[in-house]
Amino acid sequence: MAIDKATVLRIAQLARIEVKDEALDELAGELNGILAWVEQLGEVDTEGVAPMTSVVEVKLPRRDDHVSDGGRRDDILANAPEAEDGFFVVPKVIE
């Protein structure tokens, strides 16, 4: 299944990566090359095979319900491009 420019644009928007119009063709070509190559997986008979969920054979560990973190607002905001009154600040969002 070949990817066209419109698909590249849709994917780029979904991934929130700006792609200039003039770059779409080349990108579509690259992505098609990679996809054509990975599509050989379709040859493998996976009838009845469970998808890998984890390579380690252990049970999901569970924590106790204790408050052991938080109260470190300065750490949380330390690297923020913009912060104010204890909040992160982003361009206005209209719901």
């Binding site: 924590r63 938080g70 607002r73 204890g86 909040f87």
Partner: peptide
């Protein structure tokens, strides 16, 4: 994460790195 869930705390005071 181990951060608290109590209602009404000051912003970003009940936040872990996770």
């Amino acid at each position: 994460s181990g951060a608290a869930t109590a209602f009404g705390a000051e912003p970003n005071t009940q936040v872990s790195l996770v």
